[in-house]
Design a binder for these strands. Structure first.
Lengths: 217, 217, 217, 217
DNA sequence: AATGAATGAGTTTTCATTCAT
DNA sequence: TATGAATGAAAACTCATTCAT
């Protein structure tokens, strides 16, 4: 009878879910913490509190602060890639597809600012962590693959010139969207422009114009 | 004989008891420290040691770590602007000038990596410090002014279309040069490209091509 | 056998991992430290060592040095009031009660020198801390209330004149007991008198004589 | 001619005065600093700034912080004794003289608060410094001597009882005036009385009443 | 699986004091 | 006589990490 009660208390299924959920809560809190304060500025204590767990639990799951950071960085890529899956370029004309890609990228960076902040943090650290994340290369942005097919479609249709490397072109797209979002604070301080969301979206439009001129056959 | 006197009079390396020089040494060490480790990761102790002074002296001159950071950020802008003065666009044709500007910007970012790193650090902090540096707006990049005159020359000569805002165009230039340098570590980890100096310079060339297409009348 | 189990179960001296006890140990050590060295002279490190805890624990519980000081000041009042509860004046005649009060006060000051020293420290600081301790007024010495009833009894019995304010009279009592204890060191240095415990007790007797003359109807 | 100019510049007399004046300025600043912040809380830097001299000069004159403290403590006694010289009791009747002494003492403590604060500071330190000031005993308050003659006059006139020790009586006077001034901050925090200057003066009057009852034949 | 209690090893900051002129 | 420049030693305070239950 006692045993029964014990079992009733420690039902295996919900416990396991709790553990997995705790991990996820920690990961989310870590993502916010590291992207807000950077690697050194992040506080393990705050991560635990915001995740609603105790510090020893966090250490049990991840090992140490650096491991939490690595997991958060990986999580950042995972989440951003999940978002990218929602973009469908195949149903658009090559030119519309390019414009859609640029607009999407700008909105993506704008709406998930923690991603840019994690990249900045990681680059300040010299990229040591991302290099150690095993499958990094495998997770290469799906956008590049979709972009490759758009460029091919455009070249076949004779509207784009051939021979444009999709990775290098994607670097152009990313550059034009990344910088105005990433550096919004210093830009605002130095230039007298109203750098708000509308401005960013207009930048994306202009960038798309320019990129299309560059691609034109 | 002369050499001997010179040596006797001023030992070359440790010219001590010179307040202005000490300040400058601290500033330089701080610039390196903050751009290498970020705001939280920077260590006042290391700054002092690398400047060859004691910590109390540093505190005497600047007040606290944040004040040293603010001074280093300002110094970053001062030094980068000094470098920009060396670029002469007036003797070039408008089209050559644009290309030169892009190449210069890329080289500038590449060769003074502490500048990009300071900007990243400051943007991670939310730009609170640069907003407090009084004359930030006044120190607006000279490049923008030079660019303005190039665009005007080009428009007058009929080779560029009119109405291109120099600030917004400069944001394009900066974006295309900033991102590949700033994010070199994460790019390398994710893409299978040999991202070295030569690659960066080729990127600048391609970017110049694209920007000129965008400007063309 | 029992003894053995007892010992095995709880080692007597270092009962660790008891938050409330740790707090109390810190408080006691702080009281001693601040009353010995004053506010600026007190060392957080010494408090921690004497409490048998680490500095971080102390900071965890109290926040900063000033907060420890405030808690110690409050503790001083708490402990002194606890001592005052042991004085019973109701069973004595009014005149005996006054004499007992004076003797008790003198002994109290003499035997709990940290109290006077805390008051001196706090008054040197301008009383900013005690003003912030919320219930300070509420903890007003019980002695005043007991004194009030003694004065009333004496007036009703016709041995004391009426209309003597108990607070102001208590200030007389405290003055006459406080000064010789508080200033014993400077008094010794300036006057050629053997200022020892016996002297203090004789002072209390004389003071009681004087106070009774003052109260006499 | 040159020599003459030199001599004119370094006139000996005013230089010497400057040195003595600097010493005095330091002493005054030290008195204020130590009585305001206590021994540990006092800052050598502030003393130098407030005295209008450099720190090395201060060290040159006094040696170290403790020596400055000792000098300031001595100066406190010197200045307070100078004030006491202004009190003339010989022209008053014994009873009036006692009342005048009490009022004077209260006013003295009230108007020179740095004296009480220095005494508190020194007593917190255990009186080690005053013991080392050589002529401390010699500088014993003149008030005691004047009081002695008043008590004798009163005894001879039959208005005071004989055998009252002037030192011990003076301790009564000092106690009654010292405590309400010294402890004004904690008293205010604990008791609901308007403890202002008028209150202090009324306390002195009541104290004089009581002391006279005690002296009466 | 989970956590309240606790700390070693730093990190920033302060301060009495000295150096060099 | 006088001081701006400089610092060793120590103080307050923090933070990643572990202990004991």
């Amino acid at each position: 009878m006692r045993d029964q009660m014990k079992r009733a208390k420690k039902a295996p299924a919900p416990r396991r879910r709790d553990a997995e959920q705790s991990r996820q809560l920690i990961l989310q809190a870590a993502l916010e913490e590291f992207s807000t304060y950077g690697h050194s500025g992040a506080r393990v204590e705050r991560i635990a509190v915001n995740a609603g767990v105790s510090k020893p639990l966090l250490y049990d799951y991840f090992g140490d602060k650096d491991a939490v950071y690595a997991a958060a960085l990986k999580e950042a890529y995972v989440q951003i890639r999940q978002g990218e899956l929602q973009l469908d370029l195949d149903t658009l004309s090559p030119e519309e597809a390019i414009r859609a890609l640029v607009q999407f990228t700008m909105r993506h960076f704008r709406e998930k600012p923690w991603f840019i902040r994690m990249l900045n943090t990681e680059n300040l650290l010299g990229g040591t962590t991302i290099r150690e994340i095993s499958d990094a290369k495998g997770v290469q942005s799906v956008l590049v693959e979709r972009l490759r097919s758009v460029l091919t479609r455009g070249a076949n249709a004779g509207v784009f010139r051939a021979g444009v490397d999709p990775i290098e072109f994607y670097v152009f797209v990313a550059s034009l969207c990344y910088f105005p979002v990433s550096n919004i604070h210093t830009l605002r301080a130095v230039f007298d422009l109203p750098m708000d969301i509308a401005w960013l979206d207009r930048r994306a439009d202009e960038a798309a114009d320019m990129l299309l001129l560059y691609l034109r056959a």
